[in-house]
């Protein structure tokens, strides 16, 4: 049996002393979408300052439910000191959070975790989000567009319930797709990031199928040379991530996936949120909170 690289982990913790902040975050705005989905903007300047795509916050949803819930950060404004999270109010904790009102204050710790690490050798990036797994993809798209480097991102999102935004026709053409498949998240259009949606639920302007099938169509439209400069990034249900890993393997393209697991401390102390990751020396159990949440797809044991 291989031992996870514990010295590295300790060194990692030491290097990251005081890198996670405990803040009382005030709810400054909330948007409600069908199927009990919410986008909340919280005032959390210290967390916003350090947030990166893939990082998350651990939020206490109510005093009666003291164990925190991990939520991916969807957007962060360093200048205005806020972060945005998206969630579906499933379960007792997130139901309580969903009933919050403007001005309510929540204890959060964040930003937590190793996020996505884009590789400049592969400027074509396919950002695949499923259901309430879309937040880090939105964050990654915004971050790539704001960098000096010439990234070429495309965002593909899937959902079987209404999308947690008002989908609208995109002004950015995707000539690899039938022109009827033209809906997007308007925010991404505003950032000039091409995006398309997939669903089996028959929503207007969406690809009728899984987001991974849509992703495959996109990859098929690329030349082999283009694919060698492509990387996949994904967050969503485990079954979707598994399909992404398979897709990536089929095309010999690397993929980074963001995982989730029930979590207690979220700072690496309890080893409660581990997943099985294949290392060069054999199987390891790694913590989603601080060893992840983003892992190389080819190393995840699904």
């Amino acid at each position: 049996m291989a031992v996870a690289d514990i010295e590295d982990r300790i060194a990692h913790a030491q290097r990251h002393r005081s890198s996670i902040f405990l803040e009382d975050a005030e709810l400054v705005s909330v948007e409600k979408f069908p199927a009990e989905q919410f986008i909340m903007r919280l005032r959390a300047p210290r967390c916003a300052e350090r947030a990166s795509p893939g990082s998350f916050v651990h939020i206490q949803c109510s005093e009666q439910i003291p164990m925190r819930r991990p939520l991916s950060i969807m957007r962060a404004s360093k200048n205005d000191g806020w972060i945005e999270v998206l969630f579906k109010s499933l379960g007792e904790g997130l139901r309580a959070l969903g009933s919050a009102e403007i001005g309510d204050v929540f204890s959060i710790i964040g930003p937590i975790g190793k996020g996505f690490v884009p590789d400049q050798q592969r400027p074509n990036t396919v950002l695949i989000g499923g259901g309430v797994g879309i937040p880090p993809m939105v964050f990654l798209a915004e971050s790539m567009q704001s960098e000096d480097f010439d990234w070429n991102p495309i965002v593909l999102m899937g959902s079987e319930i209404p999308f947690p935004f008002d989908a609208a026709e995109s002004k950015i053409p995707c000539d690899w797709l039938n022109a009827d498949i033209n809906h997007t998240m308007p925010l991404l259009d505003r950032w000039n990031v091409p995006a398309r949606l997939a669903s089996l639920a028959g929503f207007d302007g969406c690809f009728n199928g899984y987001v991974t099938d849509l992703s495959k169509m996109y990859l098929e439209s690329l030349t082999e040379e283009q694919r060698q400069q492509t990387e996949l990034y994904a967050c969503g249900p485990t079954i979707m991530l598994q399909a992404v890993a398979k897709l990536a393997e089929g095309y010999s393209i690397p993929a980074q996936v963001s995982l989730e697991e029930y979590m207690a401390c979220a700072v690496g102390g309890c080893a409660g949120c581990t997943v099985e990751i294949q290392s060069d020396d054999g199987p390891t159990m790694q913590r989603v909170c601080v060893d992840g949440p983003v892992f190389e797809a080819s190393r995840v044991v699904f």
Partner: peptide, 15 residues
């Protein structure tokens, strides 16, 4: 034991 790993983990939290 079991709540704070091998002693350094919680020091990630500022304060």
């Amino acid at each position: 034991s079991g709540c704070v790993g091998f002693g350094e983990e919680y020091t990630r939290v500022d304060g």
